[in-house]
Design a binder for these strands. Structure first.
Length: 774
DNA sequence: AAGGGCGCACTTTTGA
DNA sequence: TCAAAAGTGCGC
């Protein structure tokens, strides 16, 4: 029979003694299915230095060293475009692939390639559509303990349909866990789970409360609820970083099993540090928040607010180190438990808003849904190119960190300081990817030392002198072309689909996923961790970009436009319709490049600094770029003051109003009636505390908290306030929970937060601090 | 177990 | 008192 199913999870298995994979999904009749396929024997490639035939013979002779080799055969593959004969070595065990790929070069001269994990191997070789529809001929089978799932064995190799179909109706379960330590971070070996909130899209939210020290009851109830509701997707906030690790260690302590998988297995930690649950997709909304630059404080409330969910206003975020004292008071317990419940509910509402983007990113990159958001940008691109390279017969290098080199990047112009009126911003569309495509910048088209190629067959890159063959197409060019074509196709579909429909939203998220991958390709080429780390490609793209923007600026000037600023791929010019049109026509004559008017500003203000400006659009939107108001490491009062100053100047063209608003703020700060929140400063720990060479406020506060037993992870933001005390700034910093409003050092906030933020803008107009009377 | 690139502004600490 | 170094977070 034919089996067509929407895939959302993949894992490894064996069937009748053969290694294979399980494809978990939902079929077109809405039934949960698992399809077992054993069509690809685990394998890797070996490129011998010596004669392939005799290497094969040696391998056969050395058989006892590699007992798990099933067969070895010769075939042709490419290494950086050059055809080679390699050994395809098939193994009886998936785990032997990585092990043998590592060991073999010690016995035989040569290099191993394609040591992919089996699930990855299947996705690549069979071109499966991760998070999308696949089909195959299949026959029903019976698997123990999996009554809720229709099980099949694939008779023909499953294959993906591609495409960007909306998700079928899936079952979601959201959860949040509350655990409180007596002092310091809660420890699963000691502290029970106090509350576990579960929300399902049946509409119910269940609160499981622990009544004593034994939480095994609520943990069992949780397992039973998952089993009963049988969700396809489990969602939480920071679940990979906190809830799952806590639950996994906690159940060990109480001696039970967290059988949440559709096959009754327990969750386990997977490749990107995320938690994997068989037959379900585990999604951590914190991974989505971390990819959104506008969200400065990465928490559930900010994410909910970003998506304008009404529930956002009801959410509270209690920092961990306040929990123990709250927990010891009855009303505090209620607060924390309520917070846990609201969190679960908010996660459930949010996932409906967020799910399309991960889904499409999964389709585009070929990473399963639960991996794709946990994977860093570089690994997403890696996965994308892996398919492209495989398609042209390229050997896939094993990952090895190479020493990295730095290179010159983009061009930034000194801005024309001051207030300008009627300015257009012209922007190259995907400049680096376009240039990479145009000049065929790719790992295998790069002319390497020793290669001899006639000059007319190569592109020579200005300034840096690297050369790239014009033909054949490199796999970067092929990969980018596919992305760019697909994006154009989706854009045309978007234009003809009515707004505010599911289809429109789905297409928009698909387009966004493609754009993200496209734009990351340049950075990827220059990243030392990339499988295809080719800094010459990144360096060449940057050099071509500098030439292109320089020529564009010259042309703009020649046409009589005033160029007031530019950065990387943009030029800010006087908005003369005719001349701007001429400039665009000139650039767009090249079919491989596109420049367009990205923004028009009624008024725009530049300080003397690059990368810092603010502009007012005709629809009233105020764009603030780079200034303190959009930096997460400034107090909210400083940010608010700066924004008010900018509005007064850009909307009302009045420095007087601006000055008055600053005075007003300073007055109310001194009057002591402002809430604490506005004074909090947050900075991230970028490395372990011990590695800091300088005593800074946020590190000192982190040390203080660490001494009390709080684990503060690298990457976490440390919130603090500056209190009235003697000594250097770092000695005056405290956790904001340790200070009363009257203890704050208002002078510091006025002199080092509010004034600098305001003066940054005002000094452009020649206003001095003295004149303003701050 | 790890999280594309470079260019830039700015604050605070450090060490003379 | 001052310049250099350390540190963070931004723009594109």
């Amino acid at each position: 029979m034919n089996c067509r199913f929407y895939l959302f999870d993949i894992d490894e298995t064996s069937w009748e003694g053969k290694p294979g994979i399980r494809l978990w999904g939902i079929d077109d009749r809405g039934r949960r299915v698992v399809v077992v396929s054993t069509h690809v024997q685990p394998y890797f490639y070996f490129l011998p230095h010596a004669d392939p035939g005799s290497t094969l013979a040696t391998l056969h002779a050395e058989k006892q060293r590699f007992p798990n080799v099933v067969t070895a055969s010769l075939l042709k593959r490419r290494l950086l475009g050059k055809e080679n004969t390699v050994l395809r070595i098939e193994c009886s065990q998936p785990s032997s692939v990585a092990a043998y790929a590592r060991q073999l070069p010690k016995f035989l001269h040569g290099r191993s390639f394609d040591d992919l994990r089996l699930s990855n191997r299947y996705i690549t070789d069979l071109k499966l559509t991760t998070s999308g529809w696949n089909e195959c001929e299949a026959e029903p089978i019976t698997i123990d303990r999996m009554a809720a799932v229709s099980s099949y064995r694939a008779v023909t190799p499953p294959r993906g349909e591609g495409g960007s179909d909306p998700l079928p109706k899936l079952r979601y379960l959201a959860f949040d866990v509350l655990a409180v330590g007596g002092k310091g971070s809660a420890r699963p070996e000691r502290d029970p789970v106090q509350a576990l909130a579960v929300a399902t899209d049946g509409g119910s939210t269940t609160l499981l409360m622990n009544s004593g020290t034994d939480d095994s009851g609520i943990l069992k109830r949780f397992v039973a609820m998952v089993d009963e509701y049988d969700p396809d997707i489990i969602v939480g906030y920071d679940s990979n970083g906190s809830s799952w690790p806590y639950l996994m260690r906690r159940v060990k302590t109480v001696g039970m099993k967290l059988t949440l998988g559709r096959d009754g297995s327990e969750p386990h930690t997977s490749v990107f540090g995320h938690t994997s649950i068989s037959g379900r997709a585990n999604l951590d909304l914190a991974d989505i928040a971390s990819g959104i630059a506008e969200i400065k404080v990465k928490d559930l409330k900010s994410l909910a607010r970003y998506f304008r969910l009404p529930v956002a206003d009801q959410l509270t975020v209690t920092d961990d180190w306040i929990k123990p004292s709250l927990w010891s008071a009855a009303h505090g317990q209620r607060t924390l438990v309520e917070e846990t419940r609201s969190n679960a509910l908010a996660c459930l509402e949010l996932v409906r808003f967020c799910i399309d983007y991960p889904t499409h990113l999964s389709v585009v990159t070929g990473l399963p849904l639960d991996q794709v958001m946990a994977a860093a940008v570089g690994f997403r691109v890696d996965s994308y190119f892996l398919r492209t390279a495989h398609g042209v017969g390229e050997l896939i290098p094993t990952k090895n960190e190479l020493p990295f080199i730095t290179y010159r990047g983009a061009l930034v112009l000194e801005p024309e300081t001051g207030l300008h009126k009627n300015i257009a911003v012209l922007d190259f569309a995907s400049m680096y990817p376009s240039l990479m495509q145009k000049y065929n910048l790719s790992p295998e088209t790069l002319v390497r030392p020793g290669d001899e190629v006639p000059p007319e067959l190569v592109y020579e890159i200005p300034e840096v002198g690297h050369r790239f063959r014009k033909q054949p197409d490199g796999f970067y060019r092929l990969g980018l072309k596919q992305l760019i074509q697909e994006r154009a196709h989706i854009k045309s579909e978007l234009a003809s689909s009515p707004e505010n429909t599911t289809l429109h939203r789905v297409l928009r998220e698909h387009e966004r996923a493609i754009k993200v991958i496209t734009n990351a390709c340049y950075g990827y080429a220059g990243w030392a961790g990339a499988r295809w780390y080719v800094p010459q490609v990144a360096e060449s793209a940057a050099a071509l970009g500098r030439r292109l923007i320089t020529e564009t600026i010259e042309k703009a000037k020649a046409l009589g436009l005033d160029v007031i600023y530019g950065d990387t791929d943009s030029v800010f010019v006087s908005n003369d319709r005719q001349k701007v049109g001429d400039l665009m026509t000139w650039v767009n004559e090249d079919p491989e490049l596109e420049i367009r008017v990205e923004r028009e500003y009624v008024r725009i203000l530049f300080t003397e600094a690059m990368k810092r400006y603010a502009g007012l659009r005709s629809d009233g939107t105020l764009d603030i770029i780079g200034l303190e108001a959009v930096r997460g490491d400034w107090s909210e009062i400083a940010q608010m003051v700066q924004e008010e100053v900018l509005r007064a100047i850009l909307e009302r063209e009045s420095t007087e109003l601006a000055i008055e608003s600053v005075r007003q703020t300073v007055r109310s700060m001194r009057s002591g009636e402002m809430a604490m929140d506005g004074f909090i400063i947050r900075k991230a720990l970028t490395k372990p505390i011990e590695e800091y060479k300088v005593r800074t406020p946020h590190v000192e506060v982190a040390k203080k908290l660490a001494k009390e037993g709080w684990e503060i992870a690298v990457g976490e933001k440390v919130p603090y306030v500056i209190a009235k005390e003697k000594g250097a700034l770092f000695q005056k910093a405290r956790p904001y929970t340790d200070a009363k409003p009257q203890e704050l050092d208002i002078d510091y906030y006025v002199d080092n937060q509010v004034k600098p933020a305001a003066m940054r803008v005002l000094e452009v107009f020649g206003v001095t601090e003295k004149q303003a009377g701050f």
